[in-house]
Simulated scan of single mutants.
Amino acid sequence: MKGEAWLFTGVALFFAVTGSVYVTFSTDPAGIAALAVSFLMSALIAAFLWWGHTRVGRRPADHKDALVQEAGGKRAYFPARSYSPALAAVGTALLGLGVVQGLWLFLIGVGVLVPGVYGFVFRNPDLAD
């Protein structure tokens, strides 16, 4: 995770430098906003990856002499059979379409999204199959 953290830290620094030069020589608000948002998003990902590196520690991918067999082990819980991701995806798509098409589709999207989010939040990994 350390390599990915360095990568996104470099991307964030690139957007910070590019954005500061752009602010100095340009008055275009759209470009300034785009570079500012790009910097903030890459800095957010870099901060998350640095936090993950301190929490999880060094992974086998961080070692130069690591073997493929060392990559095993339980890092996180991912349920094998769950309808929650599909419900959340369809509900979010319907919400987006509902903004354009009308309130009726937006409300259907809310009705589909709520059970998906509920399944994400309240799924107990101890009771999973």
Rank of each mutant, 00 (worst) to 15 (best):
R81Y: 04
L94S: 08
Y77C: 06
G31H: 04
A80G: 02
T54S: 13
W104N: 05
L35S: 02
L49A: 07
F15N: 04
L40Q: 03
Y22E: 00
M41E: 07
A16N: 03
P85A: 06
Q69L: 09
V21M: 13
A34F: 10
V37I: 15
F122H: 10
A36Y: 08
A76W: 14
W51R: 15
F39M: 14
V114P: 00
R59S: 15
G98C: 08
L97D: 07
K2Q: 09
F122I: 05
V23P: 01
T9K: 06
T27P: 00
Q69W: 03
A34Q: 09
A34E: 01
G57N: 06
R55G: 01
G52S: 14
W50R: 07
A80F: 10
F15T: 01
Q101K: 12
T92A: 15
V114L: 14
W104M: 06
A93I: 15
V121R: 09
A46K: 02
F122G: 00
T24V: 03
W6M: 09
A34M: 11
R59N: 12
A66Q: 07
Q69A: 15
A128N: 06
V110Y: 03
V21K: 11
V99I: 13
V100I: 13
V110Q: 01
K2W: 12
V100K: 13
G10D: 00
Y118V: 05
L113E: 04
L13E: 00
D62C: 01
S82M: 02
A46L: 02
M41Y: 04
I45C: 00
T24R: 13
A86F: 14
L35K: 04
V11T: 08
L107V: 15
F120K: 00
L35W: 04
E4Y: 11
R123A: 12
A36G: 14
H63N: 07
L127H: 10
L97G: 14
V114I: 15
G98L: 00
V117E: 02
Y118W: 12
R55Y: 10
H63T: 03
L105K: 10
R81W: 13
A30K: 11
G3M: 06
S38M: 10
Y83P: 05
A61G: 08
